[in-house]
Protein backbone atom coordinates (compact mmCIF):
# COMPACT_ATOMS: atom_id res chain seq x y z
CA UNK A 1 0.00 0.00 0.00
CA UNK A 2 1.19 3.46 -0.88
CA UNK A 3 0.82 6.26 1.63
CA UNK A 4 -1.28 9.24 0.55
CA UNK A 5 1.88 11.29 0.43
CA UNK A 6 3.56 8.79 -1.88
CA UNK A 7 0.53 8.71 -4.15
CA UNK A 8 0.62 12.50 -4.40
CA UNK A 9 4.30 12.40 -5.13
CA UNK A 10 3.84 9.83 -7.90
CA UNK A 11 0.93 11.81 -9.36
CA UNK A 12 3.14 14.85 -9.51
CA UNK A 13 5.95 12.81 -11.10
CA UNK A 14 3.60 11.36 -13.74
CA UNK A 15 2.34 14.85 -14.52
CA UNK A 16 5.86 16.17 -14.95
CA UNK A 17 6.76 13.24 -17.20
CA UNK A 18 3.78 14.14 -19.39
CA UNK A 19 4.60 17.84 -19.44
CA UNK A 20 8.20 17.27 -20.45
CA UNK A 21 7.19 14.74 -23.08
CA UNK A 22 4.79 17.15 -24.75
CA UNK A 23 7.35 19.93 -24.45
CA UNK A 24 10.08 17.79 -26.06
CA UNK A 25 7.96 16.98 -29.09
CA UNK A 26 6.92 20.62 -29.52
CA UNK A 27 10.52 21.62 -30.24
CA UNK A 28 10.61 19.69 -33.52
CA UNK A 29 6.86 19.94 -33.89
CA UNK A 30 5.96 16.27 -34.06
CA UNK A 31 6.35 12.94 -32.32
CA UNK A 32 4.90 9.61 -31.23
CA UNK A 33 2.52 11.21 -28.77
CA UNK A 34 -0.08 8.46 -28.27
CA UNK A 35 2.18 5.65 -27.13
CA UNK A 36 4.40 7.94 -25.06
CA UNK A 37 1.47 9.31 -23.06
CA UNK A 38 -0.03 5.92 -22.29
CA UNK A 39 3.00 4.72 -20.28
CA UNK A 40 3.64 7.84 -18.18
CA UNK A 41 1.85 6.50 -15.11
CA UNK A 42 3.76 3.23 -15.32
CA UNK A 43 7.05 5.15 -15.66
CA UNK A 44 6.13 7.20 -12.59
CA UNK A 45 5.67 4.07 -10.47
CA UNK A 46 8.79 2.42 -11.89
CA UNK A 47 11.21 5.33 -11.55
CA UNK A 48 9.40 6.98 -8.64
CA UNK A 49 9.17 3.91 -6.45
CA UNK A 50 9.89 0.43 -7.74
CA UNK A 51 13.10 0.50 -9.70
CA UNK A 52 16.47 0.28 -8.04
CA UNK A 53 18.60 2.63 -10.13
CA UNK A 54 21.37 5.13 -9.53
CA UNK A 55 21.34 8.15 -11.86
CA UNK A 56 25.02 8.69 -11.12
CA UNK A 57 25.83 5.15 -12.23
CA UNK A 58 23.57 4.18 -15.15
CA UNK A 59 25.53 0.95 -15.62
CA UNK A 60 25.44 -0.01 -11.91
CA UNK A 61 25.63 -3.80 -11.58
CA UNK A 62 22.98 -3.93 -8.87
CA UNK A 63 20.37 -1.96 -10.79
CA UNK A 64 16.98 -3.08 -12.05
CA UNK A 65 16.66 -3.01 -15.83
CA UNK A 66 13.97 -1.50 -18.02
CA UNK A 67 13.60 -2.53 -21.63
CA UNK A 68 11.08 -0.28 -23.36
CA UNK A 69 10.50 -2.52 -26.34
CA UNK A 70 8.04 -0.07 -27.85
CA UNK A 71 11.00 2.18 -28.54
CA UNK A 72 8.92 4.95 -30.10
CA UNK A 73 7.83 5.88 -26.56
CA UNK A 74 11.41 7.04 -25.97
CA UNK A 75 10.49 10.67 -25.19
CA UNK A 76 8.41 9.60 -22.18
CA UNK A 77 11.30 7.51 -20.85
CA UNK A 78 13.71 10.40 -21.46
CA UNK A 79 11.48 12.68 -19.40
CA UNK A 80 11.47 10.23 -16.50
CA UNK A 81 15.23 9.69 -16.71
CA UNK A 82 15.94 13.40 -16.85
CA UNK A 83 13.63 14.20 -13.93
CA UNK A 84 15.35 11.43 -12.02
CA UNK A 85 18.73 13.05 -12.68
CA UNK A 86 20.32 10.79 -15.29
CA UNK A 87 21.07 13.77 -17.53
CA UNK A 88 20.43 17.54 -17.58
CA UNK A 89 16.91 18.81 -18.23
CA UNK A 90 18.24 20.89 -21.11
CA UNK A 91 18.85 17.76 -23.18
CA UNK A 92 15.11 17.34 -23.54
CA UNK A 93 15.08 20.26 -25.98
CA UNK A 94 17.34 18.31 -28.32
CA UNK A 95 14.95 15.48 -29.22
CA UNK A 96 15.66 14.43 -32.80
CA UNK A 97 18.12 17.24 -33.46
CA UNK A 98 21.28 16.37 -35.39
CA UNK A 99 23.85 14.62 -33.14
CA UNK A 100 21.32 14.39 -30.31
CA UNK A 101 21.60 12.04 -27.33
CA UNK A 102 17.82 11.66 -27.49
CA UNK A 103 16.71 10.08 -30.77
CA UNK A 104 13.06 9.28 -31.48
CA UNK A 105 13.60 5.63 -30.50
CA UNK A 106 15.44 4.35 -27.39
CA UNK A 107 19.17 3.90 -28.00
CA UNK A 108 21.39 2.61 -25.21
CA UNK A 109 24.56 3.86 -26.87
CA UNK A 110 23.27 7.42 -26.83
CA UNK A 111 21.23 7.95 -23.67
CA UNK A 112 22.36 7.37 -20.05
CA UNK A 113 19.78 5.17 -18.34
CA UNK A 114 18.46 3.49 -21.48
CA UNK A 115 19.35 -0.16 -20.99
CA UNK A 116 18.55 -1.62 -24.41
CA UNK A 117 18.17 -0.21 -27.94
CA UNK A 118 14.70 -0.66 -29.41
CA UNK A 119 12.61 0.72 -32.25
CA UNK A 120 12.25 -2.30 -34.47
CA UNK A 121 9.17 -3.68 -32.72
CA UNK A 122 9.06 -7.17 -31.29
CA UNK A 123 12.68 -7.57 -30.23
CA UNK A 124 12.80 -6.17 -26.70
CA UNK A 125 11.22 -9.06 -24.84
CA UNK A 126 13.77 -11.57 -26.16
CA UNK A 127 16.60 -9.31 -25.05
CA UNK A 128 14.87 -8.89 -21.68
CA UNK A 129 14.59 -12.68 -21.36
CA UNK A 130 18.31 -13.02 -22.10
CA UNK A 131 19.19 -10.48 -19.43
CA UNK A 132 16.83 -12.16 -16.96
CA UNK A 133 18.36 -15.57 -17.64
CA UNK A 134 21.91 -14.24 -17.17
CA UNK A 135 20.92 -12.63 -13.88
CA UNK A 136 19.42 -15.91 -12.69
CA UNK A 137 22.50 -17.88 -13.70
CA UNK A 138 24.61 -15.38 -11.76
CA UNK A 139 22.18 -15.52 -8.80
CA UNK A 140 21.79 -11.80 -9.02
CA UNK A 141 18.65 -10.31 -7.45
CA UNK A 142 17.95 -7.58 -10.07
CA UNK A 143 14.47 -7.20 -11.43
CA UNK A 144 14.06 -7.07 -15.23
CA UNK A 145 11.15 -5.00 -16.53
CA UNK A 146 9.96 -4.91 -20.12
CA UNK A 147 7.22 -2.85 -21.78
CA UNK A 148 5.61 -3.92 -25.05
CA UNK A 149 2.75 -2.37 -27.00
CA UNK A 150 -0.48 -4.22 -27.71
CA UNK A 151 0.09 -3.80 -31.44
CA UNK A 152 3.71 -4.78 -31.04
CA UNK A 153 2.63 -8.06 -29.48
CA UNK A 154 1.52 -9.14 -32.96
CA UNK A 155 5.17 -9.78 -33.81
CA UNK A 156 5.62 -13.53 -33.42
CA UNK A 157 9.00 -13.14 -31.75
CA UNK A 158 7.21 -11.97 -28.60
CA UNK A 159 5.51 -15.32 -28.29
CA UNK A 160 8.76 -17.18 -28.79
CA UNK A 161 10.18 -15.15 -25.91
CA UNK A 162 7.07 -15.79 -23.83
CA UNK A 163 7.50 -19.55 -24.27
CA UNK A 164 11.22 -19.34 -23.56
CA UNK A 165 10.71 -17.32 -20.39
CA UNK A 166 8.18 -19.80 -19.00
CA UNK A 167 10.35 -22.80 -19.86
CA UNK A 168 13.34 -21.20 -18.17
CA UNK A 169 11.35 -20.07 -15.12
CA UNK A 170 12.33 -16.43 -15.51
CA UNK A 171 10.48 -15.21 -12.43
CA UNK A 172 12.74 -12.17 -12.26
CA UNK A 173 11.10 -10.88 -15.43
CA UNK A 174 8.04 -8.61 -15.33
CA UNK A 175 6.36 -7.83 -18.61
CA UNK A 176 4.02 -4.86 -19.00
CA UNK A 177 1.63 -4.91 -21.92
CA UNK A 178 0.56 -1.35 -22.70
CA UNK A 179 -2.93 -2.33 -23.77
CA UNK A 180 -4.06 1.01 -25.19
CA UNK A 181 -6.22 -0.73 -27.81
CA UNK A 182 -4.70 1.22 -30.68
CA UNK A 183 -1.76 0.76 -33.00
CA UNK A 184 -0.55 2.90 -35.89
CA UNK A 185 -3.24 2.53 -38.55
CA UNK A 186 -6.32 1.81 -36.45
CA UNK A 187 -7.63 0.04 -33.35
CA UNK A 188 -5.96 -3.22 -32.46
CA UNK A 189 -9.38 -4.91 -32.57
CA UNK A 190 -9.86 -3.84 -36.20
CA UNK A 191 -6.42 -4.93 -37.38
CA UNK A 192 -5.41 -8.01 -35.41
CA UNK A 193 -7.37 -8.52 -32.22
CA UNK A 194 -5.11 -9.56 -29.33
CA UNK A 195 -7.72 -10.03 -26.63
CA UNK A 196 -7.32 -11.42 -24.12
CA UNK A 197 -3.71 -10.95 -23.11
CA UNK A 198 -4.31 -12.35 -19.65
CA UNK A 199 -5.76 -15.61 -20.98
CA UNK A 200 -3.11 -15.94 -23.65
CA UNK A 201 -0.27 -15.38 -21.20
CA UNK A 202 -1.73 -17.74 -18.61
CA UNK A 203 -2.09 -20.46 -21.19
CA UNK A 204 1.62 -19.91 -21.93
CA UNK A 205 2.27 -20.60 -18.22
CA UNK A 206 2.85 -17.04 -17.14
CA UNK A 207 1.33 -15.41 -14.11
CA UNK A 208 -0.74 -12.53 -15.44
CA UNK A 209 -3.09 -9.90 -14.13
CA UNK A 210 -4.91 -6.93 -15.57
CA UNK A 211 -5.01 -3.48 -13.98
CA UNK A 212 -6.02 0.07 -14.80
CA UNK A 213 -2.79 1.42 -16.29
CA UNK A 214 -3.56 4.95 -15.12
CA UNK A 215 -4.17 4.00 -11.48
CA UNK A 216 -0.85 4.48 -9.72
CA UNK A 217 -1.79 2.46 -6.65
CA UNK A 218 -3.10 -0.41 -8.74
CA UNK A 219 0.07 -0.49 -10.84
CA UNK A 220 2.23 -0.43 -7.74
CA UNK A 221 0.27 -3.21 -6.06
CA UNK A 222 0.45 -5.36 -9.20
CA UNK A 223 4.23 -4.93 -9.35
CA UNK A 224 4.52 -5.86 -5.66
CA UNK A 225 2.65 -9.09 -6.36
CA UNK A 226 4.66 -9.75 -9.53
CA UNK A 227 7.95 -9.50 -7.66
CA UNK A 228 7.44 -12.86 -5.98
CA UNK A 229 9.89 -15.52 -7.13
CA UNK A 230 7.62 -18.49 -7.67
CA UNK A 231 9.19 -19.97 -10.78
CA UNK A 232 6.94 -18.17 -13.25
CA UNK A 233 7.48 -15.05 -15.32
CA UNK A 234 4.97 -12.31 -14.55
CA UNK A 235 2.89 -10.07 -16.75
CA UNK A 236 0.89 -7.00 -15.88
CA UNK A 237 -1.58 -6.05 -18.57
CA UNK A 238 -2.15 -2.32 -18.28
CA UNK A 239 -5.46 -1.10 -19.57
CA UNK A 240 -4.53 2.31 -20.83
CA UNK A 241 -5.71 5.10 -23.08
CA UNK A 242 -3.52 6.06 -26.01
CA UNK A 243 -2.63 9.74 -25.69
CA UNK A 244 -3.72 9.85 -22.03
CA UNK A 245 -3.26 13.28 -20.49
CA UNK A 246 -2.44 15.17 -23.67
CA UNK A 247 -5.58 17.23 -24.35
CA UNK A 248 -5.27 17.30 -28.12
CA UNK A 249 -4.26 13.66 -28.51
CA UNK A 250 -6.28 11.70 -25.97
CA UNK A 251 -9.18 9.65 -27.31
CA UNK A 252 -8.32 10.35 -30.93
CA UNK A 253 -7.95 7.39 -33.27
CA UNK A 254 -5.05 8.87 -35.23
CA UNK A 255 -2.76 9.95 -32.43
CA UNK A 256 0.17 7.62 -33.03
CA UNK A 257 2.55 10.11 -34.61
CA UNK A 258 1.19 13.65 -34.76
CA UNK A 259 2.14 17.25 -35.26
CA UNK A 260 2.59 19.22 -32.06
CA UNK A 261 2.49 23.00 -32.40
CA UNK A 262 3.85 25.31 -29.71
CA UNK A 263 0.32 26.56 -28.99
CA UNK A 264 -1.14 23.07 -28.71
CA UNK A 265 1.68 22.09 -26.38
CA UNK A 266 1.12 25.15 -24.20
CA UNK A 267 -2.62 24.46 -23.96
CA UNK A 268 -2.05 20.79 -23.14
CA UNK A 269 0.52 21.66 -20.47
CA UNK A 270 -1.83 24.29 -18.98
CA UNK A 271 -4.58 21.69 -18.82
CA UNK A 272 -2.26 19.29 -16.98
CA UNK A 273 -1.26 22.02 -14.50
CA UNK A 274 -4.84 23.00 -13.77
Amino acid sequence: MLTDKKVQELEQFAKEIRIHTIDQMAVRGFGHMGGAMSICDLLSVLYGKQMKVDPQRPQWEERDWLICSKGHAGPAVYSALSLKGFFPRGWLKTLNQPQTSLPSHCDHKKTPGIDVTTGSLGQGLSVAAGIALAKKIDQNQNQIYCIIGDGESQEGQNWEAIMFAAQNKLDNLILFVDNNKQQLDNTTANICNMESFKEKLESFHWEAEEVDGHDLEAIDAAIERAKNRNGKPHAVVLNTIKGKGCSFAENILKNHHINVSKEQAEDAIDALNR
Binding site: R28, F30, N96, S104, H105, D107, T117, T118, G119
Partner: peptide, 13 residues
Amino acid sequence: DPGIMAAYNGGTH
Protein backbone atom coordinates in the same frame (compact mmCIF):
# COMPACT_ATOMS: atom_id res chain seq x y z
CA ASP B 1 11.93 5.03 -46.71
CA PRO B 2 15.23 3.60 -47.96
CA GLY B 3 18.48 4.90 -46.51
CA ILE B 4 18.45 8.43 -45.14
CA MET B 5 14.83 8.85 -46.14
CA ALA B 6 13.97 7.28 -42.76
CA ALA B 7 15.06 10.70 -41.39
CA TYR B 8 13.64 11.24 -37.88
CA ASN B 9 12.96 7.56 -37.33
CA GLY B 10 16.71 7.19 -36.91
CA GLY B 11 19.23 4.36 -36.88
CA THR B 12 16.87 1.45 -36.22
CA HIS B 13 14.75 2.41 -39.22
